[in-house]
């Protein structure tokens, strides 16, 4: 227990950031986020925006898979539904970006509930296969329903406009991405402070005893699917306006697997873990790429073998993580915090 950590009310004891130290560092972090775009170049801002989108989607998947224990291999498809909904709403109806955002979420949540319906009868790997079917079906629709989705050529989208301001640069878009990420992360964290989030974890840990505690399993599984795909839809909307185009190539099966990898590497069931995982899975491949670029001058024959190495190293890194820290980056973070709590005294 932390020395001198006494609370006088239950509200103070239930706060997310319980100590003044934690609140101080949160403040520092938020200031850093606000200053970042003024010092970073376009490429870094682009990466930050991409990471933001990934965080929103990963937080969603972590609610469904990490917390409620329903493995989904179709998360990219829900991101896709959000993306196509936005693209269609903005090009056909000219709806503003801020309206597209919740509508994309709702559209994805609607299909999420439909895909989640089999969870009444299926668990574990069987449900996983059902969500895989959803992934394949939606991908098929994206490619082949040409009049609506534009087929493999997709839909081009104009830059988003917020209060008359065109978000046509990475710099401007950053100021939309970050607030939305903060909103989504806060909402997810809130969820786990109430009976709904507790019910999700109960279903994951022991569904039979959850039911005997008065939790309607089917209802709460559908809640998990709806929330998860709502966030996926929001991520999809951000994705479209960030890339200004949507094509089926953005939402293949391996993208779903990438989201799963994010929450596993980050930490299953942890909101903070989703953030770490999304950052890791977006930034590390890029970092490896630039590292390998240092060897550019070598013999082309060597380069031929060196480039695929990026994928191999990345895969290895993930395996190493899972072996040495199966609880993910969130657990490493917790240990580092624990260490500095009493630093420089060891015990």
């Amino acid at each position: 227990m932390r020395v001198g950590d006494f609370k006088e009310s239950y509200a103070a004891d239930e706060a997310v950031f319980r100590t003044s130290t934690a609140r101080f560092w949160l403040g520092v972090f938020l200031v850093a986020l606000a200053v970042f775009p003024f010092v970073a170049g376009d490429y870094l801002l682009y990466m930050a925006n991409l990471t933001g989108v990934a965080i929103v989607a990963a937080v969603g998947l972590n609610i469904l898979t990490g917390a409620a224990g329903q493995i989904s291999l179709g998360h990219a498809a829900f991101v896709g539904i959000g993306a196509y909904t936005s693209a269609i709403l903005v090009t056909r109806l000219g709806l503003p970006f801020l309206l597209c955002l919740p509508l994309s979420g709702l559209a994805a949540a609607f299909f999420g509930v439909i895909v989640g319906a089999p969870s009444m009868r299926m668990k574990g790997l069987y449900l996983c296969i059902a969500t895989l079917a959803a992934q394949v079906i939606f991908e098929f629709i994206f490619v082949h329903w040409v009049p609506v989705t534009g087929g493999i050529r997709g839909i081009n989208v104009p830059a988003a406009t917020v209060f008359g301001l065109q978000l046509d640069t990475e710099f401007k878009f950053y100021f939309v991405t970050i607030p939305i990420v903060i909103l989504v992360v806060t909402a997810a964290r809130n969820l786990f402070r109430t009976r709904v989030g507790r019910a999700f974890i109960a279903i994951r840990d022991r569904d039979i005893s959850a039911e005997l505690m008065g939790i309607n399993l089917f209802q709460y599984k559908l809640y998990a699917f709806a929330t998860s795909s709502f966030f996926a839809g929001v991520a999809g909307c951000l994705n479209v306006f960030l890339l200004k185009v949507v094509t089926p190539e953005h939402f293949p099966l391996h993208e779903s697997v990438r989201y799963l990898a994010m929450i596993i590497v980050g930490g299953l069931g942890s909101v903070l873990g989703s953030i770490f995982g999304a950052i890791f899975m977006t930034m590390v491949p890029e970092a490896l790429q630039s590292l390998l670029n240092l060897f550019q001058g070598l013999d082309p024959a060597v380069m031929e073998y060196l480039f695929p190495l990026q994928t191999v190293i990345f895969g290895l890194l993930i395996v190493v993580f899972l072996v040495f820290e199966p609880q993910g980056l969130a657990e490493i973070w917790r240990r580092v915090k624990d260490y500095f709590r009493l630093w420089p005294f060891e015990h």
Partner: peptide, 10 residues
């Protein structure tokens, strides 16, 4: 009584 929406807003 907390509903899903109320839970997200807390």
């Amino acid at each position: 009584k907390t509903s899903l929406l109320q839970a997200l807003l807390y």
